[in-house]
Design a protein around this nucleic acid. Structure first.
Lengths: 231, 231
DNA sequence: CATCTGTCTATACACTTGTATATTATTATC
DNA sequence: GATAATAATATACAAGTGTATAGACAGATG
């Protein structure tokens, strides 16, 4: 049931770089293919009309140029491969958004900067985002948990930002955790639908996202100041 | 008051044209199975771990008790069956929310009433909601378009409600269409994740949804009154 | 009655899938 | 060079898939 956060599963380091470990003597044939190669092969196969959970083991092996059975040297399942994919996608996106946040603190709007970076990345690094955005609802439990975990990372970081942002404006935030959750889920849901749209409309979607996020931020601040709200 | 598709007890008319029994004389053998029966069979197969797009034609035929080839008498594809399923799910949910809205106007909070009805239905009529909530991201274009269409129905109805609600409180709404879109997507995204949680936690999720929706409503009203907002 | 027509079934084909088993290839150490 | 260990392959199998083709059934029409 372990999600296996990194490639750490069952202490089998097949990576070719593993021989760099001094004392450890790797016996046997040198691995000609790595976990990363398989992940990359899977990545080449996913797309707007191809979900990770619909990939077959043989298909990935074919794309990677190995025999079907060799797959088992690196992953037990397609599920395990899928989780590795999610990890990579999550790491990538978190890095990107981190940069956006950093860029934002030196000037422009945090909201606009983050949303625009998100949408840029949607175009540039399509595949990874695809996986994270739209495949959290299908697939195995492990799969879903892995996506859920990535989302909660975003929520945590965003919550901290929301509080800091409010303090900078001398105001407060009502239920920052909930506000962060709402923003995260909303952005991801909007991003998922945006991926089916032509590039020209991405800017338009980004503007919609910005307004939506501002509604939530203004709402949570207003509630914090004026107390609860009429039904 | 059952939301379920009234799984056609037995072969009534099957013709999609619903030619009824007027002057048109149906030649040949009487259909022993109907489109609705096939839809019902597919519905029995979907679940938390089984997406519609992963169902096979043979599987549905087996569940319905017909030969695989008989499937083609009713649908061209599994895709076409999937779209019929979405239509049914959308109709069902719209009816339910309509009732919630009606119930709300005679007293309690529209937000609370709608959200709670939504979550109740999530438990009661799981299968149909599953389909609508989580399968909009995978599957064919036709599939995705069908889900998108259902969502836009909700958005339209919600937008009207938002404006009316604001008028009743002597205030205004900033970009009601966007606010409606944000609320819809958010509720659906939250609902999708809620389905993987045990029933006991549904009430908790419902409370979170209510707060989130209020944030958006308060936000859009505040922006409408105080104009735009600092970055 | 026979005939026609649409519904359903049976059989079959070519294909893909996951995986079990056995074999070969390549490397590091002795 | 021999040996041991490991990576990768080849072959095979049972199961599942979509669908083409042809025939069997049942009921209204002539």
């Amino acid at each position: 049931m372990s999600i296996s956060p990194t490639t750490g599963l069952s202490g089998s380091m097949k990576a070719p770089s593993a021989s760099s470990a001094s004392t450890v003597t790797a016996l046997g044939r040198r691995a000609v293919i790595s976990r990363e190669d398989l992940v990359a092969a899977a990545l080449k196969l996913v797309g707007p009309h191809r979900s990770v959970s619909s990939l077959s083991l043989r298909e990935v092996a074919r794309e990677a140029g190995i025999a079907p059975n060799s797959f088992y040297r690196h992953f037990r399942d397609m599920d395990e491969l899928a989780i590795a994919l999610i990890d990579q996608a999550g790491r990538s996106l978190r890095t990107i958004i981190g940069e956006a946040r950093h860029r934002a603190t030196e000037g422009r709007s945090v909201v606009r900067s983050s949303v625009e970076t998100f949408m840029e990345q949607l175009s540039a690094d399509e595949k990874l985002l695809h996986i994270l955005l739209r495949e959290g609802n299908v697939g195995s439990d492990a799969f879903k948990l892995a996506v859920e975990r990535e989302l909660s990372f975003f929520e945590d970081e965003l919550r901290v930002d929301l509080v800091r942002l409010a303090q900078a404006h001398d105001t407060a935030v009502h239920e920052p955790a909930l506000a962060a959750k709402a923003i995260t889920r909303l952005i991801f849901a909007m991003g998922a639908t945006a991926m089916d749209l032509p590039r020209e409309r991405h800017a338009e979607i980004a503007e919609q996202m910005i307004v939506m996020v501002r509604m939530i931020i203004v709402g949570t601040q207003t509630i914090a100041v004026h107390g609860t709200v009429p039904d």
